[in-house]
C-alpha cells in the first residue's frame, strides 16, 4: 500500500487550505458568522484502517454530503460530520427554532448542510484540480444520514472499481468559538489516485 510522503501531504494540505479558505469566505456570508476552516492532516490510507481509526464512533449517526466525480478522476467525494455538530453549523442562521416542528427544523438543517457540504467539496476539489491541471466534473450534491459503516457500504456499492485506499482530508471548522470536525473522503479508482499523485509530483518538480 502506498502512502503520502511528507512533501506530498504538505503540498495537498496547502492546496486544500486554499480551497477551504474560499469556502470559509462563502460560509461566513451565508451563516452570518466568521468561519475559519483549516486542514490539519491529509492521509492516503487503507479503507479498513480508516473504518477502525477515525473520529466517529461506530454507533453515532453522521450527516454527510456526497458528489460523484468524473472525467480525469473517477470516484466520489464524501464530506461527513457528527450529526449533532452539523446542527451547530446552521444554528446561527436557523437559530433556536422551538416553534418549528422537529420535521420542519430537520428539513431546514438538511437543506443548509447540503449547501454547506456542496460549497466545501467543490471548493476543495476545484483547488486540487486547478493546481494539478486536471479536468473533472462533479454531479449534483446529495445529503444523507447514516452510521459510518453504512455510509461506506452505500458509497462502495456505487463507485465501480474503487481502490481500497482512500484519501482522507481532515477538516476543522471554527464558528463562533465552536470547533466542528469533519472528514472529507475521496474514494477514487486506483488509476485516479495514481493520476492525482502524479499531478502532485509534477507540481513539486516545478
Amino acid at each position: 500500500m502506498i502512502s503520502l510522503t511528507t512533501i506530498q501531504e504538505d503540498a495537498l494540505i496547502e492546496i486544500c487550505n486554499v480551497g477551504m479558505s474560499k469556502a470559509a469566505k462563502q460560509l461566513s456570508i451565508l451563516l452570518n458568522s466568521h468561519i475559519n476552516i483549516h486542514i490539519p492532516k491529509i492521509s492516503l490510507l487503507d479503507m479498513q484502517h480508516f473504518i477502525q481509526n477515525n473520529i466517529f464512533s461506530s454507533i453515532e449517526t453522521l450527516s454527510y454530503v456526497y458528489q460523484t466525480i468524473s472525467e480525469d478522476l473517477l470516484g466520489r467525494a464524501i464530506l461527513m460530520f457528527h450529526r449533532a455538530q452539523a446542527t451547530l453549523l446552521t444554528q446561527s442562521v436557523i437559530g433556536i427554532t422551538p416553534k418549528l416542528t422537529e420535521k420542519e427544523a430537520k428539513a431546514c438543517e438538511q437543506e443548509a448542510v447540503l449547501e454547506i457540504g456542496n460549497i466545501m467539496i467543490t471548493s476543495c476539489m476545484s483547488a486540487i484540480v486547478n493546481m494539478i491541471s486536471l479536468h473533472i466534473k462533479l454531479d449534483t450534491p446529495h445529503y444523507n444520514e447514516h452510521r459510518l459503516i453504512e455510509v461506506i457500504e452505500s458509497q462502495v456499492k456505487d463507485v465501480e472499481k474503487y481502490s481500497q485506499e482512500i484519501i482522507l482530508i481532515e477538516t476543522r471548522l471554527e464558528s463562533a468559538g465552536k470547533f466542528i470536525s469533519g472528514s472529507l473522503l475521496l474514494m477514487l479508482t486506483k488509476s485516479s489516485i495514481d493520476n492525482l499523485l502524479s499531478g502532485i509530483n509534477n507540481l513539486l518538480k516545478v
Partner: peptide, 11 residues
C-alpha cells in the same frame, strides 16, 4: 469543476 450548485432558501 462543472459542479452543480445548490443555493438553498434556508441560507
Amino acid at each position: 469543476v462543472a459542479s452543480p450548485q445548490v443555493l438553498s432558501q434556508t441560507l
